[in-house]
Design a protein around this nucleic acid. Structure first.
Length: 276
DNA sequence: TACGGACCTTTC
DNA sequence: AAAGGTCCGT
């Protein structure tokens, strides 16, 4: 539980004093207290909203078992069984713009940028201090200057550009409709957006559209991949071709669970980092 | 195709 | 310097 809210999948969650987590996802806010195996939850939403967010319909035990039988080499890195999960955004538009903020960036700043965008959205039911992430229409009305002065850097130009293009394609409904496409098609649509490359497209496909076979390869995943699978590539940069090579290999190996297996590589990175 | 560098800004 | 990249030059 603790890990998955700080593992770079979502950026609107924070740990309050003690073991209480609060966060916003789509139209819902949550205040969660974890006691052993039980969650005490305060929310404006339904139980099903939280179940969806944590993808509780997927049994971590089953997924881990499946990953182990396909890739026993990941056994040392499945310690995430204690709570690291692949999360699912309620709103793919929120996911898309969140990950636009994430490119070549670090977590504290990503969170600040997402927080800024969220101030532009409609109020959340029953919670005064936070707002829902805005939709395409509102985001298309944001100016570059506004985002510049809010510290968005060069993304100040790309975000409104993407919003305008999305609006041309049908706005929120277009983004939501990508959930019903095949993974490859959805990914291609996303990559056709400026500032969205393979990595962001795969993050959006995995966390926002629910494509479990998606494998986002960032610099940390790439380093883990070279340690475990491609020692010959150690130290080499992640070119588009190597990205595809590894993603294809990993998808073939783990199928619909590739996105979860990829979390094991993230965990390997954590262990590797801690051991230094 | 495959590298190098630029791009905004903050943080380690 | 590096940051969970992308794009545009060689």
């Amino acid at each position: 539980m603790g890990l998955c809210l700080t593992s770079g999948q979502v950026f609107r969650w924070s740990r309050n004093a003690s073991d209480v987590w609060t966060g916003v996802d789509g139209p819902n806010w949550f205040r969660i207290l974890q006691l052993e195996e039980r969650l005490i939850v305060e929310t404006n939403g339904q139980t099903s909203d939280l179940e969806r967010f944590f993808q509780l319909h997927l049994s971590a035990r089953d997924v881990i078992h499946s990953i182990l039988s396909a890739g026993p080499e990941l056994e040392p890195y499945l310690g995430f069984g204690r709570g690291l999960r692949v999360l699912r955004y309620a709103d793919p538009v929120e996911c898309l713009f969140t990950f636009l903020c994430s490119a070549n960036n670090h977590v504290p700043r990503i969170s600040a940028m997402v927080r800024h965008l969220a101030t532009l959205g409609p109020p959340l039911e029953g919670l005064a201090e936070q707002r829902r992430f805005p939709g395409v229409e509102r985001l298309a009305a944001v100016t570059e200057e506004e985002l510049r002065s809010a510290g968005f850097g060069y993304r100040a130009a790309s975000l409104p550009k993407v919003a305008a293009l999305l609006r041309e394609r049908g706005g929120d409904a277009y983004v939501w409709s990508l959930q019903d496409a095949e993974y490859e098609e959805a990914r291609d649509e996303l990559i056709s957006l400026p500032s969205v490359g393979p990595k962001l497209a795969d993050c959006i496909a995995l966390f926002g559209l629910g494509f479990g076979e998606s494998v986002p390869v960032d610099t940390h995943i790439w380093k883990a991949a070279t340690r475990i699978y491609f020692p010959n590539y150690a130290g080499l940069s992640l070119t588009p071709q190597k990205y595809e090579e590894f993603a294809t290999f990993f998808k073939k190996r783990f199928g619909a669970n590739a996105g979860w297996a990829h979390q094991a590589l993230f965990y390997e990175g954590l262990l590797n980092w801690r051991s230094r």
